[in-house]
Design a protein around this nucleic acid. Structure first.
Length: 590
RNA sequence: GAUUCGCUAGCUCAGCCGGUAGAGCACAUCCCUUUUAAGGAUGGGGUCCUGGGUUCGAAUCCCAGGCGGAUCACCA
């Protein structure tokens, strides 16, 4: 009895309930799926489908006199269909583009049996299905490049209707543009919005350009720990996790700087890593909790050398992606042609505010912040105040790629002191489109100085700076063995990708940006309803009426519920035996 | 976290001085052998985000909540 009920429930879940939950179009597609099986057609076949070319290749190489492309086979997704009796047109999309195919009944079914065209193509296939087609390439009467289909095969049946986006002369109709849906269902976004694919191809090309550039210089691409017992190398709040075996707290890395430097101590000349870093902070159009940066460390170089290197590398990226050093970003055209402008931080502040702060002490800087309307608090040292002034008054105004050099020592605990200017360090950031795209220094390699800087950080931490760095004893030990002088840099891949692809939001350059979990309304399992004495087949209709929890159902008016259920049975042609009013009252415990 | 805007059919959106829920595309049926954002005709399709309140009556007005966008704050 128990087993019988289980079997019944599971069958009913699969067919009956599922149908009530699905949209009409989804039900129709599932019926088509069954009809395909009935015709002996596997909607998800195993054998390889051999494509002979890509759509882009056809579009590029075919012309009216071509004798190639007589036996062309392509595979892709049906994006539109126009059925005109014995002849139809469909658009197929592969990974390179879209092409029209022409399917006529007599060309695709030369024999007596016209089932493939009349039933399979016209009735059982839908927009979104993935098919393979074979036939010659030709131009239609209206001059549209097409494939005349001699045969076709269904490769994957689509059960959910795609959003239909149409476009003519650059004007887009019915765009699939809701950001939430685009980011949550990136696969759909990629199918219907071709420019999205392009953005991500550019992002990969950007990283490949860097990789090729650095490999050509024989720097070694390495991997370092993501789970770190002591996080460091940047100022940020971390994600915290726990390793059971060692009963140990671990942090997801906020940067990989300290590990790469250990490798330089170990004797590598140049190392780099594309690293996913994690910072437990706010989210907006420039910030995602996980993000990518490349960090590069090269022994025996200084920050001037690094400026030249990053300039050259980023210029190369612009050229590889756009065939020019000029890139359209929002309203601006940004030119990455070398050499980039260079300002010291003091020069930049003087340039944008007219005030020379190079001789000011902490008190004067605090007063200046007050004058500029910049909020300050007691935890802020001199360096932080200068950084605030720069951030508030300069950074957003810098559109063309510009190096800002020579930062205050307080903000840069891992940076070598300036060779000639006291109170400053040999550090630069490149600013572009009002945002930092990289951060670099002549790296501190004096272990005594480094220990002192860490201790100053601890002091800042005590003053309330939540981002002050932790003291990393193992890193200091490495440095005590002797660390070569070196230049190091971190480049934000997401930020740079945004600029290089003219994207407004970091979410547009991440395939799967972090989002809140999708809300699932709490519902009671069918068994809970059945326990009230409700026949299994009536649970789905009751759910459909909005009663998804039994508590909710018990509040219902039994007379109305009885009427509604009988009404639904009739209207939706469920073919069920109506309950009696006393049954309904019994379910509700009345 | 704060402010603000949005959530209506599979998709894009209208309706919002309260009175039977709409359009285009998509879908279904029929007709049609070269169409192109779209062949023609007919038709089906809704928990108007959720919950509460006001009211004879709420997609619409009020309150609370959910999710998302934008701006701001922290940060790369």
């Amino acid at each position: 009895m128990y087993i019988c009920a289980r079997i019944f429930i599971s069958r009913y879940k699969r067919f009956f309930m599922s149908h009530l939950e699905l949209s009409e179009q989804e039900i129709i597609r599932r019926q088509a799926l069954q009809e395909l099986y009935d015709l002996g057609i596997d909607p998800y076949p195993a054998p390889e489908f051999k494509v002979t070319t890509t759509i882009a290749n056809i579009q590029e190489k075919f012309h009216a006199e071509s004798t190639d492309f007589q036996d062309t086979a392509i595979a892709g997704r049906i994006m539109s269909r126009r059925i005109m009796g014995k002849a139809s047109f469909a658009e197929i999309q592969d990974h390179t583009g879209r092409l029209q195919v022409y399917i006529s009944r007599d060309e695709s079914c030369p024999g007596e049996d016209k089932t493939m065209y009349d039933i399979v193509f016209k009735k059982l296939m839908d927009i979104g299905d993935i098919i393979g087609v074979e036939g010659p390439v030709f131009y239609t009467k209206t001059g549209e490049l097409s494939i005349k289909v001699k045969s076709f095969v269904l490769l994957s049946k689509s059960l959910k209707p795609l959003p239909i986006v149409k476009e003519k002369e650059g004007q887009v109709f019915d765009a699939f543009s809701d950001p939430e849906q685009r980011y949550r269902m990136r696969y759909v976004d990629l199918i219907v919005n071709p420019q999205v694919k392009d953005t991500f191809i550019k992002r990969t090309k950007l990283m490949n350009t860097m990789r090729e550039y650095l490999n050509a210089k024989e720097y070694l691409e390495v991997e370092t720990p993501i789970l770190q017992p002591v996080y460091g190398g940047a100022a940020a709040r971390p994600f915290k996790t726990h390793h059971n075996t060692h009963d140990q707290t671990l942090y997801l890395r906020i940067a990989n700087e300290l590990y790469l430097k250990r490798l330089i101590v170990g004797g590598f000349d140049g190392v780099y890593e594309f690293s996913k870093d994690f910072r437990n902070e706010g989210m907006d159009r420039f910030h995602n909790p996980e993000f990518t940066q490349i960090e590069l460390y090269v022994a025996f170089k200084d920050y001037f050398w690094m400026m030249n290197t990053v300039e050259e590398m980023v210029e190369k990226i612009a050229i590889n992606l756009h065939n020019t050093t000029k890139v359209q970003v929002g309203e601006h055209v940004i030119d990455f042609q070398r050499p980039w402008k260079r300002f010291t931080m003091f020069e930049a502040i003087e340039h944008y505010t007219g005030i020379d702060i190079s001789e000011m002490d902490e008190k004067q800087l605090r007063e200046l912040c007050l004058k500029f309307g910049i909020e300050t608090d007691e935890s802020m040292g001199k360096g932080k105040l200068i950084d605030e002034i720069f951030g508030e008054k300069c950074e957003h105004l810098i559109i063309q790629p510009t190096f800002i050099t020579d930062y205050p020592v307080e903000m840069s605990p891992l940076t070598k002191k300036h060779r000639s200017k006291t109170g400053l360090v040999e550090r630069f950031e490149a600013i572009c489109n009002g945002k930092e795209i990289c951060n670099s220094y002549s790296e501190l390699n004096d272990p005594i100085d480094q220990r002192q800087r860490f201790e100053e950080q601890l002091e800042l931490g005590k003053r309330g700076d939540e981002e002050a760095m932790m003291l990393d004893e193992d890193f200091l030990r490495a440095m005590e063995y002797g660390m070569p002088p070196m230049a190091g840099i971190g480049i934000g891949i997401d930020r740079l990708s945004m600029i290089m692809t003219n994207s407004q939001s970091i979410q547009d350059v991440l395939f799967f940006p972090q989002m809140r979990p999708e809300k699932k309304s709490a519902i009671d399992a069918p068994e809970v309803f059945i326990a009230l004495g409700i026949p299994a087949e009536w649970v789905a209709p009751i759910n459909k009426m909005g009663f998804v929890k039994v508590d909710q159902l018990k509040q219902a008016n039994p007379n109305k519920l009885f009427n509604d259920l009988c009404g639904m049975n009739k209207k939706a042609k469920l073919g069920l035996t109506n309950p009696r009013i006393d049954d309904v009252k019994a379910w509700l415990g009345q």
